[in-house]
Amino acid sequence: MATLEIHDLHVSVEAENGPREILKGVDLTIKQGETHAVMGPNGSGKSTLAYSLAGHPKYTVTGGTVTLDGEDVLEMSVDERARAGVFLAMQYPVEVPGVSVSNFLRTSATAVRGEAPKLRTWVKEVKSAMEQLQMDPAFAERNVNEGFSGGEKKRHEILQLELLKPKIAILDETDSGLDVDALRIVSEGVNRVRGTGEVGTLLITHYTRILRYIKPDFVHVFANGRIAESGGAELADVLENEGYDKYVKGGASA
């Protein structure tokens, strides 16, 4: 059973006046089949955690460990992490001019699966995944994220999640900027993947709204670069009512 173990993770970014520590000792273990919601105010370091796990070069790990089934993730290059089964649905997906969605999807599926998917089954697979996400087939011929609306970008991220079938899925504010319909469609996509029981999900969100569609097994409150409190699904209801004030240093208590 796949397990991602994050232990005492410290991460800095290069700021104007030298390195600035953003993650200040994160501990979290995610097992295949589990869903962990990480909730926290803006600027608490949620995206930093997500990007650090995926290996973005902007973030420097200054301490701690991350392992996937005992393998040192921090030693791996970005593409190696993806091939090892770590997937990050980005908060702000990047435009890649000149590269079509269909070409991109096939290239990444080939890389992650270790061999080119058989053309006939692949075409069907993509087509049905796109249908379920209510994406127009013409989408496949557009350039990656170029001119996509916010909702289209997020659907495209979840399309990749469905096709790449990772062991660990990190979803960074996949819900933000979505209207109710799009939120439902995207959540159903996540739930299809969760339904296989083969993925551990790290659902990063600012709002509780998405948790009506995706039921977490664990909820963690993220504040000031670390996990401030952990609990079950009921913790989300507390946050819904009370907000993050009590976790934010100097914030007024609710």
């Binding site: 290996g55 593409d79 993806a82 997937f87 070409n103 790449l164």
Partner: peptide, 30 residues
């Protein structure tokens, strides 16, 4: 004149695509 930037490279590599392959994709498309 545009640069094949690090964010594009990161995005493609985060989908398992090795660096050389990622560059090739972008150049071919270009």
């Amino acid at each position: 004149t545009g640069r094949f930037d690090d964010e594009q490279l990161f995005y493609l590599m985060a989908r398992g695509i090795p660096e050389t392959e990622a560059r090739r994709l972008v150049v071919r498309g270009f």
